[in-house]
Design a protein around this nucleic acid. Structure first.
Length: 177
RNA sequence: AAGGCAGGUUGUCUUGUCGCUUGCUGCCCAGGCAGCAGGAGGAAAGUCCGGGCAACACAGAGCAGCAUACUUCCUAACGGGAAGCCAGUCCGCCCCAGGCGGGCUGCGAGAAAGGGCCACAGAAAACAACCGCCUGCAUUCCGCAUUGCGGGUCAGGUAAGGGUGAAAACGUGAGGUAAGAGCUCACGACCGCUACAGGUGACUGUAGCGGGGGGUAAACCUUAUGCGUUGAAAGGCCAAAUAUACCGGGGCUUGAGGGUAGCUCGCCCAAUCCCGGAGGGUAGGCCGUUAGAGCUGUUGCGCAAGCCACAGCCCAGACAAAUGACAGGGAGUCCGCUUCGGCGGAAUACAGAACCCGGCUUACAGACCUGCCUUUUCU
RNA sequence: UGUCCUGUGGUGUAAUUGGCAACACGUCUGACUCUGAAUCAGAAAAGUCCAGGUUCGACCCCUGGCAGGACAA
């Protein structure tokens, strides 16, 4: 399905911090890509549901003092859209410094989201085959507004490169264990 | 008909595929699917003004500060708007030292409260005497020369003339005088007061009386009027979470500190408290949050801004932030070709709600309407 | 969403009761040198972000815009 719902977007403050602190990145003009693959198949899901509420479940991932200082961890309520019902959560960023007008920023973000919506399906099946979940950010760095077709071709290029990177990570990790 | 100026209205339509979001209904279960209905603007922008709304425990006073400034009206209110008055400027007409009409501009109270400032130039820039003009039985000066005359010096008078300047102390004529001067007179211009007439009023006209030393208040200031402060990141409820562990200072009714935001006074609160350092926790949901000084139409009142009455209508509600993408067709505008049927191409603006209203300002492809001006053609 | 600040040669800064737009670095030309650097001499380069207004006169005062920046979670 070529959908793009709220649950497919990265809209939680803590996930954004996680992505930008621990994620890797590369450039494909005009994007700067930041991604963070959660590719351990034995890991508990990042969020779980219980009694109709959504909770965060990353206790063993956190540093020790942090967990000691917060005994009630990990029982914290979250909005339903934070749930991982899809393998990827993405966010799109266009700098206000490069584009003063809100109309221009809206246009670029809508084109990127549209291109992602049309071409994400191959990437989804790729991730579901390997049981990987992924956080993703597109940062638009060009100083001129590119037409839709060019953006779409660059998105396809980006997804190709992402697959290669994630494949390399997955092959490196079991050998490290 | 074309062009220009001013004002107002409007600011692309439609089909298909995929997609986002809100509300309602239904079905599997807290999400998805299906159906129906809705989904950016005239400026949503700049944040320049004014309000609504909310919090600051309960009355305040004075000073300071800020804003405004012709009149009347509109408005919830305004620094906004309408109509006028006055001033400046431009144009046209006429019976042309003037008058009338029209357009544009104006933060347009007070300089007869007070000081401050007015560069350069100029004698002098604000209680004006440098040169000039005039007077003197003032003179131990000089020359001619003999009780005088001329010059100098001294003491006075005088704003008629003087290369300046943005600005020079009412203008012209006559009288007057030693020389002069609104010193006096006539005419004219200006300012103030009084009376009468018109107007709600700013003000205008006429008559009389009085007056003769500038400008600057969008520099200080004075007068009048208004203003408590902070903004939805206000504020309320729910959920989750923890620690004052430690260090320094102050205070406990003889009061640290706070309400109180520039100051002072007054009033009130106040002890496991206050300030600083160093740390710890949270980053989620709901309300506020879309029915309102609301929109549309008609009649009436008013020069107008606007107001009253009646009828009808419900018109985005996101929250790491939706309202979109692609393809085809149509419309109007411009360009090229033309067999006048069309064909091909280009461009289709400014710009995106973030608590909500009323204004102002700024940006804007094109289309339409009204008024004025210019040119051309026809009658 | 709100509050505040700043715009002057190519660059960084002055200019103050409102009275000639100045200085340094850089640029260009010449001299010195075999050549360059340094040094010396000289020149050009803004009319003060824009548009109005007050004033005799505006970088300065007032109004409205434009651009840039800072702060508040």
């Amino acid at each position: 399905m070529q959908t793009f719902r709220k649950s497919e977007r990265l809209c939680t403050f803590r996930l954004k911090e996680l992505l930008f602190n621990q994620g890797q990145g590369f450039f494909v003009y005009p994007f700067r890509i930041v991604y963070h693959g959660l590719n351990n198949p034995n890991l508990e899901p990042l969020f779980f549901k219980q009694d109709g509420l959504v909770y965060e479940g990353l206790a063993e991932h956190l540093p020790k003092p942090f967990a000691d200082q917060n005994p009630s961890w990990p029982y914290r309520k979250l909005p339903p859209s934070a749930l991982f019902t899809h393998p990827v959560k993405i966010m799109v960023t266009v700098s206000k410094k490069n584009y003063k007008k809100a109309t221009d920023r809206n246009l670029i973000k809508r084109r990127i989201k549209e291109a992602w919506r049309k071409n994400k399906e191959v990437f989804y099946t790729f991730l579901e085959d390997r049981k990987i979940k992924c956080l993703l950010a597109f940062v638009y760095t060009s100083s001129e507004i590119l037409p839709y077709k060019e953006i779409e071709s660059k998105i396809i290029l980006t997804l190709q490169k992402l697959k290669e990177e994630l494949e390399a990570q997955k092959q490196a990790e079991p050998s490290g264990d």
